[in-house]
Design a protein around this nucleic acid. Structure first.
Length: 430
RNA sequence: GGCGCUAUCGUCUAGAGGCCAAGGACACCAGAUUCUCAUUCUGGGAACCCGGGUUCGACUCCCGGUAGCGUCACCA
């Protein structure tokens, strides 16, 4: 029987869930789902200086938001608990003790160092192929710090052994750690897991994404109104390509098509232009009712569900991020600041007076009646529709760029539209 | 600096020796539709890092160089 597939992601809870966590989760999740394996979430929280309270919850929330779930973890428990390294200290000490007893490690100023065997190490990386390191690259590295905590390279190996991890899929920054870890596996007489190192995401400066300098906090994306499906889809496109060349697809399809062989070796740049496009695409695909209720959180004013439902069709194809609605719709609840200088067209007063008269006489305030009141008569008058509507738009909304005007006026209501037009008219009288 | 990884349009990528005078997507530009914007549609410019091999033939294989990135912590 083939060995069961068990993979893990091992984030450190340093404050928030970031894009890198999501990217790691994505590959591991796809791989494990595809192979009917078990997905383990392990917390690497041995750096006490960096520990942040509540970071754990934030991390789970971020990953869950994107649609990832895990089978074993600190919150879920599991047969290999505990899943927090800080709770596994005794276990590490026990294994350190074993190495010392076997003469493979020694104490050094309160810490414990592993004795470097100095042999060449190599492994067959599932993404890179064979990677080889000369033996003199590994020195006697610390495995247990003087504060009693294990170092990363030691803890990770102990945990992966104990949790029977079969495949380690992680970022390329770990390639140079792998020889040390391999030496440890050898010391314990354990067959190491299969290693795969994907390239880490870069910023526009081509540097590894930085938690401090780059916008990588997943909450940032959520707050701006990126849909999790769009973000996941975007991440899928970085470093991996669909065998049929598709660009728009969901997690399910990603899992179905995912193979490590199609993971590119070069490091992709996290350029969100394409994300914006994808997000707009996903927004346009959303059901109007669902979109209306989602939008509520991105509007500062108190708006009714009915208003949102009315407004969705006219803004749906005009936003790339949900947060774009605020600017697009502001004129609905904020009276425009009108100034004479805004109206470049010399016929502006005439336009406004004409519109006022036409709209005053409109009985049923519906799109049909408003269209009828304006469109045909504007033509008859010989006005240029573009000029006329731009003037009207400025008078009613105060902006040059708005959703379709007649539709907007219908939603705004007859009374409010007339008031605004009268206000605009007055500007020319003083 | 040592070691390691990588190298196709601005960006994400396809390409596993001839199907490539290199394809798609985003972005950009132009045009069509249009009351603005947007959507949609059409069109356009835009790349195989350099130099040697191997081969009848190289974007694809090998070597060297260059560049970028990573790593050399009692961080993870």
């Amino acid at each position: 029987m083939a060995k069961q597939v068990r993979v893990r992601i091992a984030p450190s809870p340093t404050g928030f869930a970031h894009v890198g966590n999501a990217y790691a989760a994505l590959f591991n999740y796809a791989f494990v789902k595809k192979n009917n394996g078990t997905f383990v979430l392990r917390l690497e929280d041995t750096d006490r200086k960096r520990h942040v309270e509540e970071a754990e919850e934030v991390l789970y929330a971020g990953l869950s938001w994107l649609g990832f779930s895990w089978d074993e973890g600190p919150d879920k428990g599991g047969p290999y608990a505990p899943y927090r390294q800080s709770e596994r200290l005794e276990r590490y000490k026990e294994r350190v003790g074993q190495l010392i007893k076997d003469g493979l490690a020694y104490e050094d100023e309160g810490a414990v160092r592993f004795k470097n065997p100095g042999q060449e190490v190599s492994w067959n990386d599932l993404i890179h192929g064979e990677i080889k390191f000369p033996g003199d690259q590994i020195t006697d590295f610390v495995i247990l710090k003087s504060d009693g905590f294990p170092t990363y390279n030691f803890a990770v190996v102990i945990d992966d052994i104990d949790m029977e991890i079969s495949h380690v899929i992680r970022g390329e920054e770990h390639i140079s750690n792998t020889p040390r870890q391999l030496a440890l596996y050898k010391a314990f007489g354990v067959t190491p897991p299969q290693f795969s190192h994907y390239s880490t995401l870069r910023n526009s400066e081509h540097k590894k994404l930085s938690k401090r300098r780059d916008p990588v906090d997943l909450r940032l994306y959520r707050e701006q109104g990126y849909l999790p499906e769009a973000l996941v889809n975007f991440l899928c496109l970085l470093g991996w390509s669909h065998p049929e060349g598709k660009e728009v697809f969901g997690l399910e399809e990603f899992i179905e098509k995912f193979t490590l062989e199609r993971v590119r070796k070069a490091g992709p740049i996290f350029d969100t232009k394409k994300l914006d496009w994808l997000n707009g695409l996903y927004i346009r695909q959303m059901d109007n009712v669902a979109l209306a209720s989602t939008l509520n959180k991105f509007i500062s004013a108190d708006t009714s569900a009915q208003f949102l439902l009315q407004v969705v069709p006219i803004i749906k194809e005009r936003i790339n991020k949900l947060s774009d609605v605020e600017n697009l719709l502001r004129f609905f609840w904020e009276k425009p600041q009108i100034g004479r200088e805004m109206f470049e067209n010399e016929k502006s007063v005439e336009f406004i007076s004409f519109a006022l008269e036409a709209l005053r006489g409109t009985e049923n305030w519906t799109l049909e009646s408003v269209n009828e009141a304006l469109a045909q008569r504007v033509k008859n008058k010989g006005y240029k529709t573009g000029e006329f509507f731009m003037c009207l738009r400025l008078a009613v909304t105060g902006q040059k760029i708005t959703p379709p005007l007649n539709e907007s006026m219908v939603i705004l209501g007859k009374e409010e539209v007339l008031v605004r037009l009268e206000t605009a008219q007055k500007v020319f009288l003083t």
